[in-house]
Amino acid sequence: MDDAWIVPDWPAPATVGAAVSTRQGPGVSAPPYDRLNLGLRSGDDLAAVVTNRAALAQALALPATPLWLRQIHGTAVAEHSAPREDEPEADAAVARGPGKALAILTADCLPVLFTSADGGTIGAAHAGWRGLAAGVLENALARMAVPAADVMAWLGPAIGAPSYEVGDEVRAAFVATDPGAEAAFTPTRPGHALCDLYMLARRKLAAAGVTRVFGGGFDTFRDSRFYSYRRDGAASGRFATVIWTR
């Protein structure tokens, strides 16, 4: 693929496709959302976003319209069991069988993709710090109903630790249930620390028994290919991390 897309580097089954959109894709959004903004609730023109979503589906040759979610930084998981027009209120989704597509919207939060070893079950999760601490990854894995040893995960573009300063409440939320999570926080000034979302996600996945974890190493704040809410504020669009079954 060209620079409009990031293709996950993971040993997923041949029947599973995945890609991440960038701002450089075939979109029509005007500045400051230029140009492939996919977030309906980002302040962009709604008609432009609908056009962009159709362009994404066409460019990636998706087998079906993705299941888009109304994400609220929670832990609910939707199951894509049949075609639907609405956006369920959830921060993760799973699908079984061929011809399905899932999409996660982010602009600094961590998108996580899952697939079973046989490609029969896929999943996707939106893991901001609140959802990550509360168990959105564990809930997605439970809904997949696949032994953890048969699951692989890919960590998509998120804000990197050097760019992500948080308050003590974030550190406390993780350390309360996992004292070892302290290693993911580097103190900066009183009451604040740099937070490594990738390390925290890997710890969560390892505790759940998922050892085949790929991806990471992005920083949406510093990489202009991606939307970043922390960098751009309310004028930030959303990019999509998509997974599908052929």
Rank of each mutant, 00 (worst) to 15 (best):
D168K: 07
R246T: 14
A158D: 08
V210M: 02
E138H: 12
H80S: 09
D196S: 10
L113E: 05
R222A: 15
V213H: 01
A140G: 09
D44S: 10
R35Y: 00
D9T: 15
V49P: 03
V7T: 15
V7C: 09
S236W: 07
A14W: 09
L197K: 10
G191L: 07
S116R: 03
A124E: 03
A76S: 11
S81H: 10
A101F: 04
R203A: 13
D3G: 12
T186C: 00
L38D: 01
A140Y: 02
D178T: 13
A140L: 04
G99W: 11
G215V: 11
L194I: 05
A145K: 07
L113D: 06
V242G: 04
D9E: 15
A48R: 13
A18P: 08
A172E: 14
V166M: 11
V7R: 14
L110R: 08
R84M: 13
P26H: 11
L38V: 10
A90M: 02
A95F: 01
L141Q: 01
R203Q: 15
S21Q: 04
T15G: 15
A158R: 07
G209W: 05
T211W: 02
R202M: 08
M1K: 07
A207Y: 01
I104F: 03
D150M: 02
G209T: 07
A207N: 10
E138A: 15
A18C: 09
A142V: 14
A206H: 09
W10I: 13
A183W: 05
V50H: 14
G99K: 12
T186Q: 13
G160H: 11
F214C: 05
F221D: 12
R212I: 02
G17M: 09
G39E: 05
G123Y: 03
A234Y: 13
G135Y: 05
L36A: 01
L56M: 15
L102I: 06
A234E: 15
A234G: 08
R70P: 00
P157N: 10
I6E: 12
A149G: 12
G156K: 09
P162D: 10
A90K: 03
G217P: 12
P66T: 04
R238I: 00
A127F: 02
I104T: 04
T220L: 09
A153G: 00
D9R: 14
G27L: 06
T115M: 01
L46P: 07
A142I: 06
G215A: 09
A201P: 06
A103W: 06
D168N: 05
R35I: 00
V210E: 03
A95M: 02
H126R: 13
I159F: 11
W154F: 15
G215H: 09
V16F: 05
A101K: 04
E85V: 14
D108I: 07
P26S: 11
L155I: 10
H73P: 00
L62S: 03
L40P: 01
V210G: 03
G160M: 12
L56F: 06
E87H: 13
T245P: 08
T245Q: 11
D178Q: 13
D3Q: 14
A183T: 15
A76Y: 00
G237H: 12
K204N: 11
A140V: 05
A158V: 07
G43P: 10
R222W: 05
C195V: 06
V210W: 03
G99M: 12
D91A: 00
